[in-house]
């Protein structure tokens, strides 16, 4: 397979396959949860479920003092790489162009040097997170193969994207093909791993908050 053929494959059949697995897989996972439903709560409402749910989405996204003190590193590094991923994926001009072409929606991009710097910071944060996981005996004990896999498929598009942008080593078509392929790996892994939390986390937070809200307590 030549470079051009590889590039054509990742843009064509490769991307089609990855999209099917990603979208279909996530749709199944989310709907399976939603269809489960809940028993009607027969007790009289003592507060607003919706307000409680929305409030919890926010409060659970901000670490409380205790958690912050106990695991400062996890919180800080976690925030950095999550924001970093948000910026590099959604605010980089060529990515927005792609989204515009597929979904027909677009928004302004950040200047390329900003995204470039963010990529480096995000990669560093992810490496630090892995080192922390390996060094901390409890974390290491709790880690499964999947945790390392998820880390790998997350950092890979960042690294390949950085290399492709700076055109290090190989020819541009090969670099861009490798980058697209690494994203396809991420898409394929998404529905089957903890990565799916990107879609379920706010639903879960809302649900916890809504139960408490209905009972008139803070979650």
């Amino acid at each position: 397979m030549s470079e051009t053929e590889f590039l054509l494959w990742v843009r064509g059949p490769g991307l089609q396959g990855a999209t099917i697995i990603f979208v279909l897989g996530m749709a199944v996972r989310i709907l399976e949860i939603l269809v489960l439903g809940r028993k009607p709560d027969l007790a009289e409402a003592r507060g607003s479920a919706v307000a409680g749910g929305l409030r919890t989405i926010i409060t659970r996204s901000v670490p409380d003092k205790g958690t912050f003190k106990r695991s400062t590193f996890t919180v800080v590094a976690g925030y950095i790489f999550h924001f970093g991923l948000f910026i590099t994926i959604l605010l980089f001009a060529p990515h927005i162009l792609l989204i515009d072409e597929v979904l027909g929606v677009s928004w302004p991009a950040l200047p390329t040097p900003v995204v470039d710097a963010t990529t480096v910071v995000t990669i560093i944060a992810l490496v630090a997170v892995l080192i922390h996981r390996l060094k901390d005996p409890v974390l290491r004990f709790l880690s499964r193969f999947q945790d390392y896999l998820v880390w790998f498929v997350t950092i890979l598009p960042l690294v390949t994207g950085y290399i492709a942008f700076h055109r290090i080593g190989f020819s541009p078509p090969l670099l861009i093909a490798i980058h697209i392929f690494s994203v396809e790996l991420l898409m394929v892994a998404f529905p089957f791993t903890k990565l799916a939390h990107a879609f379920t986390l706010f639903v879960a937070r809302y649900y916890n908050g809504a139960i408490s809200g209905y009972r008139g307590v803070n979650s």
Binding site: I20, P94, L98, G104
Partner: peptide, 25 residues
């Protein structure tokens, strides 16, 4: 552009959502 998808990804995604929704339900 050489880095954009060659096929109609939007349509693929729509079908996949449909199939996924049916399977999920």
């Amino acid at each position: 552009a050489i880095s954009t998808p060659t096929g109609d990804i939007g349509r693929t995604a729509t079908y996949a959502i449909g199939a996924g929704a049916a399977a999920g339900i």
